Computed example of a mutant assay.
Amino acid sequence: MKYFIVDAFSAARFGGNPAAVCLLDAALPDVDMQLIAAEFNLSETAYLQQLGEGYYSLRWFTPTTEVKLCGHATLAAAHALWAQWGIKLDSLRFATRSGELLANRVANGITLAFPLAPISSCSDQERVALRHLAGGANAVCRAGEDLLIELQDEAAVQNFIPNFTAIAALPARGLIVTAAANAETDANFVSRFFGPAAGIDEDPVTGSAHCALAPYWSNKLGLIEMHGRQLSARGGKVGVAIIGDKVLLSGQAVTVMAGEIL
């Protein structure tokens, strides 16, 4: 079985978030998909299986578990289908645990249509835990499957020191830490994402987190089209646009490795 490793939400190699992409000829047992993902030891491994013309099942595995939604591995999967497997259609559909997702090839990269993640109030217990993690937070809330802390500025996000044990104990998929971007940058907001409970201490670029960051910052900034920058060591840029109950995530990707699983 062939695989490709694609750096997603980056226009250059060794930036953005790497994902392994495998195209299955036949169904593979879940235990094998999990073992292969652990062997890759990337934040996500994507498994595709063709269901029809331009239509694929898509599943995502971290090194330790299957997840319901992943943005960068979906971007990587679409890129690999177009760039490596030679699919000619400009629109692709993916059947996933989060419903049908769409990918479109556009002039400056790829656009994904993902479900908007609702923003809601935290419980009192969650609020106490989040404020313990980040003293002086501007705001805390629940952001879809995740919890979110807004800090004072971009520097505070960059300098945030995560307590992975405490974050793993939160009743959420992971923790988003965010702030408005500095005025001189080309982004509207910045973020970092931590998911130690899913085997990912810090994710380089998290497309699915932007499904919540988009409505959060849209409400604060009064914009429906924005750019987010994730301040991980690798870094990456995600375009977001809100259309109804969908968030359009846009970015670029580049293939860096190819191989075969024996």
Rank of each mutant, 00 (worst) to 15 (best):
Lys2Ala: 14
Asp7Pro: 00
Phe9Gln: 06
Ser10Ala: 15
Ala11Ser: 15
Ala12Arg: 15
Gly16Phe: 09
Gly16Trp: 11
Leu23Cys: 11
Leu23Thr: 10
Asp25Gly: 14
Asp25Thr: 09
Ala27Tyr: 07
Leu28Val: 14
Pro29Arg: 09
Asp30Pro: 09
Asp32Met: 05
Gln34Trp: 11
Gln34Ile: 09
Ile36Trp: 04
Glu39Cys: 11
Phe40Gly: 00
Phe40Tyr: 04
Leu42His: 01
Glu44Arg: 02
Leu51Gly: 06
Gly52Val: 08
Glu53Asn: 14
Gly54Gln: 04
Ser57Pro: 01
Val67Gly: 03
Leu69Thr: 04
Cys70Lys: 00
Gly71Trp: 04
Thr74Ile: 06
Ala76Trp: 01
Ala78His: 02
His79Lys: 06
Leu81Ile: 08
Leu81Ser: 00
Trp82Met: 01
Gln84Met: 10
Trp85Pro: 04
Gly86Gln: 12
Asp90Glu: 15
Asp90His: 14
Arg93Trp: 15
Phe94Glu: 00
Leu102Pro: 00
Leu102Ala: 10
Ala103Leu: 03
Ala113Asn: 06
Phe114Glu: 00
Phe114Lys: 01
Phe114Tyr: 14
Ile119Glu: 07
Ile119Pro: 05
Ser121Lys: 15
Cys122Gln: 09
Ser123Lys: 10
Glu126His: 03
Arg127Phe: 03
Arg131Met: 13
His132Met: 04
Ala137His: 04
Asn138Ala: 12
Ala139Asp: 15
Val140Tyr: 01
Cys141Ser: 14
Glu145Asp: 13
Asp146Asn: 12
Asp146Cys: 08
Asp146Ala: 07
Leu147Cys: 14
Gln152Met: 08
Gln152Ser: 15
Asp153Val: 05
Ala155Leu: 12
Val157Lys: 01
Gln158Pro: 12
Gln158Trp: 14
Gln158Leu: 07
Phe160Met: 04
Ile161Glu: 08
Phe164Asn: 02
Ala166Arg: 12
Ile167Gly: 00
Ala179Ile: 02
Ala183Asp: 11
Ala183Leu: 10
Glu184Pro: 10
Val190Phe: 03
Pro196His: 13
Gly199Ala: 06
Ile200Pro: 00
Asp201Tyr: 13
Gly207Lys: 00
Ala209Gln: 05
Cys211Lys: 07
Cys211Asp: 08
Ala212Phe: 07
Trp217Gln: 01
Ser218Tyr: 02
Lys220Glu: 03
Leu221Glu: 03
Leu223Asp: 07
His227Gly: 06
His227Met: 12
His227Val: 13
His227Asp: 05
Arg229Asn: 01
Gln230Asp: 02
Ser232His: 12
Val238Ser: 02
Val238Pro: 02
Val240Met: 15
Ile243Asn: 14
Asp245Val: 10
Lys246His: 12
Lys246Leu: 07
Leu248Trp: 02
Leu249Val: 04
Gln252Ile: 00
Gln252Asp: 10
Val254Thr: 13
Ala258Asn: 07
Gly259Gln: 10
